[in-house]
Computed example of a mutant assay.
Amino acid sequence: MSRDPAPPTPTLSQLRALIAVAQAGGFGEAAAELGVSQSSLSEAVSRLEAMTGRALLRRTPAGTVTTPAGERALTHARAAVQAAGDVLLAAQDTGGLSGTLRVAAYRSVATHLLPPALATLRRAHPGVRTVLLDGDTEETDAELALRTGRADAAVVVQGQAQGLHLTPLVYDEYLFVAPAARGDHPATLEELSGQTLLLPPGRDQCHRLVRHYLERQGVSLAGLTENPQDSVILSMVAHGLGVTILPRLALHPLPGGLVTLPLPGGLSRPLALAALPWRAHLPLLRAFTETLLQTLAGRISGGHAAPAPEVWPPALY
């Protein structure tokens, strides 16, 4: 009795080639990043396309991009490559972890929340290499980096991320920031409406959250001006060129010439550590999550390594 031949199965190297070229935007760029020849990458992708019977990549004046079929295949290619690596991670135990942990986070979070926990993790597990990814831009959005396999964990705003395993971390309060000459009397909605408001770009999560708050409060956005750098925004405010609304973590340390005040009605972002549900309990991710929670609990309860209380999130969930 004869059997039907098994369908061809892509190799991991072919899948990695597709991912690399799609991410780099070209065969030459991907070859340079991987340290392989361009011809080997081209051959691997060609064999993958032959198996699917469809073009997966397309060359354009702006670079090499995925076709619709390629975009669908890319999602599964990333999952397959990640799953292959997870076989080794899953076999580890907490007694001796190794591997690379990539965490995507907003710059303010990466500056103040994550380094102490990563340092503690490294001391406990010297074989673990950690990488912090900028999660503030459209190209490196923290949640997108997690979903596409570029990050193993990401700090996100709870309530805005669906279908992920979330571990609550801290509330990060948003504050009204104005020139110090204004004084410290409470901020009002009328004051917010009558000022030049300086915010990060519209693609930024901080911008979207603040904009939603202001629209809900009926505050006019006619004077809205965007700038990608928090430091530039704060300098402009200190020189009387407008006001801003930023989270506490982005304001530490607070430059001179500024005053910070609570917003009318209050606004905060509930930060959570996100992981893909089927990866959240890998020993490496579990160890990082536990270390981060322990580090935050120690800081908030008065650990001497914490920033000053007025610029630290008030409490765990």
Rank of each mutant, 00 (worst) to 15 (best):
A20H: 14
A153G: 08
V243Y: 04
R102C: 06
P314C: 03
V155I: 13
L48M: 14
R72W: 05
H125Y: 07
D86I: 04
L261E: 06
S231E: 15
A31N: 14
Q205C: 03
F288Q: 09
Y106T: 03
T67G: 03
E138Q: 10
T66L: 12
D134Y: 00
A287Q: 14
A77Q: 02
L164G: 10
P116V: 14
T130W: 01
P253W: 03
S13W: 00
G240P: 06
A297L: 14
S37R: 01
T291D: 13
L48H: 13
A145P: 01
A119E: 14
E49L: 05
T140N: 10
Q294I: 02
V131K: 07
R59I: 13
E138I: 07
P7Y: 01
P186N: 13
R286E: 15
D134P: 02
P186E: 11
V45L: 08
L282Q: 06
S42F: 09
P61N: 07
S2W: 11
A104T: 07
H252I: 14
G256Q: 14
D172F: 01
L221R: 11
G95S: 10
F27C: 05
V170F: 02
G303P: 04
V21D: 14
A105M: 05
T148L: 04
Y213Q: 07
I19G: 09
G85Y: 03
E226K: 00
Q160K: 01
V36H: 02
R286M: 13
A124L: 12
V65S: 12
D172C: 05
A62C: 02
Q195G: 01
N227E: 12
R59C: 08
T120G: 12
G127M: 14
L249G: 09
M51I: 14
Q217L: 10
E310G: 07
Q82W: 08
H207C: 06
R216K: 09
Q38K: 11
Q38L: 06
A180E: 05
A62E: 11
L12I: 15
E290A: 10
A62Q: 12
L296M: 06
L114P: 15
A154Q: 06
T11Q: 15
A178L: 02
P7K: 05
A79G: 06
G266L: 05
V243R: 06
V243T: 13
H207W: 11
Q38S: 08
E191G: 03
C206Y: 00
S220Y: 08
D136P: 00
A145W: 00
L258T: 15
L292E: 13
H76N: 04
S46T: 15
I245D: 10
R129K: 12
R211W: 09
R150I: 00
H239E: 09
R59G: 08
E138A: 12
R279S: 13
A153V: 12
L175A: 13
A119F: 08
A161S: 15
P201K: 02
Q23L: 04
V21N: 09
G25R: 01
T188V: 10
Y317I: 06
H239K: 04
P8Q: 09
E290C: 01
P313C: 08
A306V: 04
S2Q: 13
G257P: 11
R122A: 12
P255Y: 06
E310K: 02
T75P: 03
T196Y: 03
P8I: 06
V177W: 00
A287S: 12
A80F: 01
G135H: 02
T148H: 09
P247C: 01
I19L: 13
V311P: 00
